[in-house]
Amino acid sequence: MIAPGTRVRVRDDWPETRGPCHIRTPHYLRGETGTVTRHLGDFPNPEDLAFDRPAPRLPLYHVQFDIRRLWADGTPGADLLVEVFEPWLEVTS
């Protein structure tokens, strides 16, 4: 389990270049760093559910990102909360 306040990097991985898949991690976050704010619960992995495979329950987190760090012309001071599953997160701190 990743504790609130932990800095994490979203894996810079692109499974969609390797074949059919279903991913709930947006493109714009791959390789970006944010902060875990909350464990939202454990949910069946949508990447398996979409293909009717057995879907283990995975921890789902709210991760906070600084919009200006994602886009140079993003709204200054604004931040972004996104639901991200644990296998997509690498702890950096």
């Binding site: 619960g41 604004a78 996104v82 639901e83 991200v84 599953f85």
Partner: peptide
């Protein structure tokens, strides 16, 4: 988000920061 809110004519308190919530999962 600031530009989007401006187009809706939405005026926030000067003290307010904007938090966007991207509903990506469950």
């Amino acid at each position: 988000p600031e530009g989007v809110l401006a187009e809706w004519g939405t005026v926030l308190p000067a003290s307010a920061t904007i938090r966007v919530v991207d509903s990506t999962a469950d």
